[in-house]
């Protein structure tokens, strides 16, 4: 009985998050924000369980995973379960993180294939130790300014293009490349 309940909860959650994600990919910012908000609680629970020896690192990795999900969202195929896509990214980021910090021994038996990422939530966000916006300062102007204009000052792509003299598609490319460069810096590259 309990098992059926669990499956039903997961199915409903998958359907709702998937719809929010697809609406977001179609341009609905509010849906996309709700998607990321809800997703962050699942990522936090998923990563906290697996990083039990490094509790201070959890929020950094939640943020790194969110940025990865944002940057790679064009690889989500609507025919595929969203939970599988999210879980693969979270696992990839976790393994990459542990490898980077050479703490493979922290990889306990909890890094199993099972355990659906959408099953558990954790809303207790600690502060991340790293400030993503400070990393932004290190990017070249060609990437930093379009990101600040469209993501922080709230300019539209068109307005940002007019202000900088770039084409609209160049602004979009610069934002995308800049966010990928930000992800590289979060990994500690360069």
């Amino acid at each position: 009985m309990q098992r059926i309940d669990k499956e039903e909860v997961l199915r409903a959650k998958e359907a709702r998050l998937r719809q929010l994600m697809l609406d977001g990919m179609a341009g609905d910012s509010a849906a996309y924000r709700s998607f990321l908000k809800e997703l962050s609680t699942h990522l936090r629970a998923f990563l906290r369980k697996r990083l039990s020896r490094l509790p201070d690192e959890v929020e950094d990795l939640v943020q790194e995973s969110l940025l990865a999900i944002h940057n790679q969202r064009h690889t989500y195929d609507a025919a595929q379960p969203l939970s599988a896509w999210v879980q693969a990214i979270a696992r990839y980021k976790l393994v990459d993180y542990l490898r980077r910090h050479a703490t493979k021994d922290a990889l306990t038996e909890t890094l199993d294939e099972g355990m659906d990422v959408f099953l558990a939530t954790d809303v207790a966000a600690a502060d991340a130790r790293r400030d993503v916006l400070q990393l932004l300062d290190a990017l070249p102007d060609g990437q930093r300014l379009p990101i600040i204009q469209t993501k922080i000052e709230g300019l539209s792509v068109k307005e940002a293009a007019q202000r900088s003299g770039m084409s609209e598609s160049a602004v979009k490319v610069a934002v995308h490349r800049g966010l990928k460069a930000l992800a590289a810096r979060m990994r500690g590259e360069r």
Binding site: M25, G27, L36, L66, R73, V132, T150, V175
Partner: peptide, 12 residues
């Protein structure tokens, strides 16, 4: 961070 990521044109 989420507000930052979701801001602006999020179309793919």
């Amino acid at each position: 961070l989420i507000d930052f990521l979701a801001a602006g044109d999020c179309r793919v």
